[in-house]
Write a protein that binds this DNA or RNA. Structure first.
Lengths: 331, 331
DNA sequence: CCTCGCTTTGCAACCGGTTGCACCCAGCAG
DNA sequence: CTGCTGGGTGCAACCGGTTGCAAAGCGAGG
């Protein structure tokens, strides 16, 4: 066995053909004769040959890499999603770069694209404001957003069905006889929050009830547990009749349960709590959390596909994945 | 303003110098006259110019990208660490690629290096077996491992001080008067588990006690909470005198508390529990978890530095970060 | 005034792929 | 037998940086 071929030129020499032929053969071009192509592919396989990625990216002018800006509240759901994103991308021949960019600095994304370090981005709505998003749209950078679809179809998105999610969460509480529900959500500007709240309201309407507007609180994502605990304790002081809470995330829900106890009440006897996300520990909180489940890996996979589609065909799509109620003991 | 320069040739034309001069100036080479260099850098700044990464990687023969294999149990601590890794790498001019590679397939890492998609790797000991690690060492791929230092200095590592961590966890339980401690750990092959167990044993020795060998259980990483819950319930049946548990992670600890309750006992009155990691929700479990804290972002930052050092100087180093006891209510 | 040596700059060859275009050759119609 | 057609292949010019080496400019020493 000759010394390991490291460039297509080496491989070409071994195969007795030219560089271009090797390049075309390995890329599966139809220009090459079938048996030549197969012979070369087999040869490459034998030698464990891989083309140099940098050279390929340089001459193709695309990196087949997408960026994920992981700044912002890190949560377990995002991690689950990430595994889906990487495997989804992998299947499509792309890779995932984790970024440290600052969303506020305008043009951070363009920089990556222009310098050829990434072709597009996966963004998490919970980590960026509408303003930042519209800035991105303007800059013409391809991206897919998790958590909020584009009103005017300006960008691709994958969302959980937050409307349904919010509705079934509230509906469940109403069904088990609770009548005074609170909603503990993230910032008002977050679309997913608005949609869950809308579902929450809709559930009331369907049951012929009016939601208590004073029992709706919005909190920042940061310090979720502690913030929710404080807010709920205060809320229960103001509105002692509250007997059920829909939380915008399991992390909030954990804080909510804490706050309920701090107010001297019990979960679920006095106040039932429904979370959102079904993170890994949700089944092991005390009491185990009733929550809305979304399939993280599936979401990730869809994000990957949607973005790649956007990159390769320019098609802008909006997908949504279902929400499912998991009944445990907190409600 | 002329049209935006996209290559160093463009910039060279604008500046009235040659490509090489621009290249050297932007790379801060000492070969270039100070004022020329500054003039060109200023020019680049003005135009928001960035060099093409692919071209740079191609001609330099290195990618300034490192891979992280995220397969295996995803936990919150890893996510915290990741933020440290990315920012650490960022400061050093490197980027983080999230991989989907299968550790078992030999040569997966070589593939990345040979094709120039990554220069080195960050590995998590919890996600790979000793055999896989030695395979990597053989293949000559640069990497840094989190969680277990190399006995023969074959690779770089960053570790939590698991020995101390295990010791102070057990010591705390002994100090508050518990006398029959159990240890709930991960797989025996995981070095960090062995070290924590050693610390656990050492604490007993220092207190003039003998650990109960029958109260030491090893579980797979997967399904941490449920596995730990079952194991503890069973253990308490066998060894009703147990009044304290050191868990190998907070996720295990959450399961342990569940198991204790399932056995009809209370935390911490009957059985005190100490976790490990201080993940975000540890403060909000019921009761709030006493645990050993390691600084995830710091660990990540050190992983980044250590790996880059390995890449640029070839130096193999082993760092360890301190473990700190956080007393809450579970023990 | 000439030469030496140092600093600063440019030239051109490379890094390892991709791709437009020319070319070769076999097969077939005229 | 010649001319045409078209599939299969090779040549060489890119992609946009890096870098060894030659050379130009300039002050100082002989």
């Amino acid at each position: 066995m000759t010394t390991k071929p490291t460039t297509i030129a080496d491989l070409a020499r071994i195969a007795g053909v030219s560089k271009s032929t090797v390049s075309r053969a390995l890329n599966g071009s139809a220009l090459i004769g079938v048996e030549t192509r197969e012979r070369i592919q087999a040869l490459a396989g034998e030698h464990g040959f891989q083309m140099n990625a940098a050279a390929q990216r340089l001459s193709r002018g695309q990196s087949r890499v997408v960026g994920l800006n992981a700044k912002g509240k890190p949560d377990m759901f995002m991690l689950e999603m990430m595994s889906g994103i990487t495997s989804g991308l992998h299947e499509l021949g792309y890779e995932l770069l984790v970024l440290q960019g600052d969303f506020d600095e305008p043009g951070w994304a363009r920089g990556y694209v222009d310098s050829g370090r990434a072709d597009g981005f996966v963004l998490l709505s919970a980590a960026c404001t509408p303003k930042q998003i519209s800035l991105l749209v303007e800059s013409g950078v391809p991206f897919v957003l998790w958590g909020a679809s584009s009103p005017k179809n300006e960008y691709s998105s994958v969302t959980g069905d937050s409307l349904t999610g919010g509705r079934i969460a509230a509906a469940h509480l109403l069904e088990i006889g609770r009548r005074h529900l609170a909603f503990v959500g993230g910032p008002t500007w977050a679309r997913e929050v608005a949609e869950r709240l809308e579902g929450f309201t809709e559930a009331h309407r369907l049951a012929g009830l009016e939601p208590d507007l004073a029992a709706i609180v919005h909190l920042p994502w940061s310090d979720a547990e502690a913030g929710a605990a404080r807010a709920v304790q205060e809320l229960l002081g103001r509105r002692p009749e509250i007997d059920g809470v829909v939380a915008n995330s399991d992390r909030f829900a954990i804080g909510v349960m804490e706050g309920v106890r701090a107010a001297g009440k019990r979960v679920p006897e006095d106040v039932a709590v429904v979370g959102y996300d079904d993170i890994a520990i949700a089944a092991y909180t005390n009491p185990p959390l009733t929550t809305i489940r979304q399939d993280g890996p599936l979401a990730g996979r869809l994000l990957a596909r949607t973005l790649v589609q956007r990159l390769e065909t320019g098609a802008v799509t909006a997908v949504s994945i279902p929400a499912e109620l998991i009944v445990r003991e907190s409600a």
